[in-house]
Design a binder for these strands. Structure first.
Lengths: 209, 209, 209, 209
DNA sequence: CATGAATGAGTGTTCATTCAT
DNA sequence: TATGAATGAACACTCATTCAT
């Protein structure tokens, strides 16, 4: 009997699965309509449960969004950690892979809402209120900042650039409008776009020879 | 006595001033709370007028936002055109100045809402509905794309990069979260940030020697 | 200088003409849209004057309606009186002519709104509030009741029928829906309809032989 | 245990009762104040429920009115059909009973609003929009017209009178103002009034001997 | 007098949240 | 635990009425 990770029972498992389904539906609806236009009713309907049931899992609409944010951030963090943990690769190689990750399949499923939410003024209040969200985001960004600093220390990246500026720009390489313009409208492959962006970015921050 | 450009006199002047005040207040509130959380009541209260008066100038909340978008885009377009029209400067120099413009004083006053709105999923519907908004935005982006193509043709920028990718990244150099992180939180000067970003960006897209 | 009936001057004449124009427009709009859907703005626009000007003539929307009611009732009363005053005709002949009057050209111009208003529950409050309106209406109905009583006394009409019942039915011979059904939809001539209605009504109330 | 006619149990029953209560209150308020002056708030208050609850049953104020209209028309139709279906009675006898029905107890409960609405110009738009309402009304009138034609064919009624004229007048025998004048103000018994009206009407349309 | 900009109370409607079943 | 009916606060929008010009 594995003590902590395993659910207390079958009930608990059911519960988590349902929670995942709700988050899934919520992501879809938030993505399609935005936070305010999305209604709990529609989310519940997509899962096939009653509205009240959503409230058994998430105490409010805000918390539902926060949970979504948390889930997505944690997944991204996990993947980033995995990439960062691989030994024998340069910071640039790691960051490049992370960029491909963010811009690739993941973008469709996780990062899109996430990014568009993060830029919306409507989320300002939320981010301020939910300390948790901010903390998660900081965990991710500080990990990335660590990689950038690592690259600078290793002589890969220009040491005169403030790491925070490099970080900020790295985060902005991925954007919803950019994705729409380049991938959806112009038909470029995500991987291709990511390659171009990486090319520009890493050339831009490369150490002066 | 200017016959046609001048408003029909005092009444018209009053009207335009009032309209500007409403747009000003709307910008503030939309910026602080986002479109949905902003209420016409609050906007009116900040101007010190009655709710109904807002509707004498803008037929709906949506139209108010569109007018704001229009006003801001037009101002940015005007400034961009002015910069682009100066002869004897390279595309890079022009774009660099535009970046400083976008990141400088203007950012606080005009571009902030604008950028954050543009990234919000909630605006999707609006942008689709208000053809006008889309058209204005396209006018701006195509002007920038022109400058980038010009730089490529002149051998300044890497001709192998798709112009649209360069454009997309140029637009993403400026971001609300970036501004908050670097300027508000870390205390960097906007001009300094703009200089770093320009350095990275233009080095990144520079023609291979 | 004629003392009372004549307007004090040219100004007064202008005033009355304008008032008539407003009533005219109000009648049209009330007729088309009903009291609540009609807006002072539209009425003013049809006259070609400003909204505020309407209030120089009528202190409120309610009063405007009351004035309209008064104007129409007075005109109908005048015509009814004229018909009733002609000597040498039976009560039936007089009432028949009144019916033709109400159902004919007049219906289009004056009585329509009037009738539909009178049946609307929305007018209940108004009628209660504006004593004047009630008084005018009573003047008209009592005149008609007088003719009916006269006919009964003369042996033309069945004396066993309560005069008020005869009156009530006489008033209901004319109706907006009836007009619409018979004249507008089925294409019968108003005079023809009036003739049929008169035939039925007067045969129905005729004295038993 | 009736399988299909019975509601899905207690819940459904509750629902229908609540719906009936809302319709009841709506009828009262619409009757007293007319459509526009009636507010959903007041209707809800009279039922003792929250405003939002009304919207769980009727999607809009307009639909609430339409449902009311439908309920009333259907009830009248049902009663009319029942009367018309009885064999061995003349058309006149049937129509006379229908008249008593419309003028009697039913008038207070169902037909009053109905009649006054139908004559109001404000309802024009509604009737045009809600096809359903028009259809119901037509069903009722065509049933009555059928009885009138039947009477003509049987030699009871004057065959030279257009059936539509007879129908129109039959409908106008009942009226809100007439009821108020004769029953409320003059204290006549509804049945008595109906008897008088029937006397006049059927004598008026009787076949010439 | 005429104007029409300004007002602000009033209303239909939505929807996150609660709670009795 | 799941349900979904009920709630009620919130908000966009309208329009009769007023009043400074």
């Amino acid at each position: 009997m594995p003590p902590s990770t395993a659910p207390r029972s079958w009930k608990e498992k059911q519960r988590q699965e349902r929670e995942a389904l709700i988050l899934q539906a919520a992501e879809e609806v938030f993505c399609e309509k935005g936070y305010h236009e999305a209604s709990i009713d529609e989310i519940a309907a997509r899962v096939g449960i009653a509205k009240g049931t959503v409230y058994l899992h998430f105490p409010s609409k805000e918390d539902l969004l926060a949970a979504l944010f948390r889930r997505d951030t944690e997944q991204v963090i996990a993947e980033v950690e995995a990439i960062a943990a691989v030994p024998g690769r340069s910071a640039r190689e790691k960051l490049e892979e992370i960029l491909h990750l963010l811009y690739g399949e993941l973008f469709k499923k996780r990062t899109r809402l996430f990014y568009s939410m993060y830029n919306s003024p409507e989320m300002g209040a939320l981010l301020a209120k939910k300390e948790q969200m901010h903390a998660h985001w900081e965990q991710l960004t500080s990990r990335l900042e660590g990689l950038l600093a690592e690259g600078q220390a290793a002589g890969e990246f220009n040491p005169e650039l403030p790491t925070s500026v490099m970080l900020s720009l790295f985060l902005n390489l991925v954007s919803v409008r950019g994705y729409e313009r380049l991938v959806v409208r112009e038909g470029l492959a995500p991987a291709e776009v990511a390659r171009y962006l990486a090319h520009i970015y890493f050339k831009g921050i490369a150490a002066e020879h």
